[in-house]
Design a protein around this nucleic acid. Structure first.
Lengths: 122, 122
DNA sequence: CCAATATATGTAGTAATACAATACAGTAGG
DNA sequence: CCTACTGTATTGTATTACTACATATATTGG
């Protein structure tokens, strides 16, 4: 099965993105999937098989805490809420992303005053 | 051994960064390591154990080609040069990085007209 | 009423890749 | 001689996004 390169790009930002959304408002897995897709107009589509394990990792690390809530008599959702530790972690990771993305963009000749970035033909 | 989160961030950009440098001028592994560190003021430090396998992957994919050059009688370097296929690939990946990094930055409230990005305390 | 779709969570196994640790060897300076 | 730096390379490990699958309930259209 041929993998997309964008998979690799996602690896550093998934947990930060989840935490960012959970920080805004307590929410649950399925909602996060839809929200990410909507807000990034399709650039950050994450699958259930990615999201649910990632949420579990966040909880194990103590960055979020979860509980079940019954939407109907028989139907449960697992809600997630950020912790203080999670908030501290989020701030660090946001700064890290900014520094990293700026460094890479600069390296690759992509600046705010973006000029033609097509590689030269040396 | 505690791993750095930045490891994950790097996973999508390493090959693109290598290709970008090789596109500028034919070069070799050790030089790339030093050059990346210098140009990104330390934000993109990659180790030999990352670079050398990555260069091999690029060659297997036909994006670069390599040859040995003797710097002294006994000492050889492996130089890399980009191929036409590599140049096409590079352009695609640069565009992909731009789109991706913009999408993520937008999601996380980091725009060019960057306002305070500290998470709210809902 | 029934089928299809959407909602909702979860696991097992696989692929990709950055790293540490290690190995080897030449070279330069004290 | 000895240390540090240059230079390439491999082995094994950790992390994590994905596919495929499993299981349910809820809703909508024909």
């Amino acid at each position: 099965m041929k993998r997309q390169y964008s998979e690799q790009l996602k690896k550093g930002v998934t947990e930060t993105a989840l935490l960012y959304l959970i920080n805004e408002v307590q929410t649950y897995g399925y909602s996060i999937i839809k929200e990410l897709e909507k807000r990034t107009t399709g650039y950050l589509k994450l699958k259930g098989g990615t999201i649910y394990p990632a949420l579990q990792r966040l909880e194990i690390k103590g960055l979020v805490k979860s509980w079940q809530q019954w939407t109907t008599e028989r139907r449960a959702r697992r809600y997630y809420k950020i912790t203080d530790k999670g908030r501290q972690f989020l701030v660090k990771r946001l700064v890290e992303w900014q520094d990293f993305s700026l460094a890479v963009s600069t390296l690759m000749g992509i600046s705010d005053t973006a000029k033609a970035t097509s590689p030269n033909t040396t």
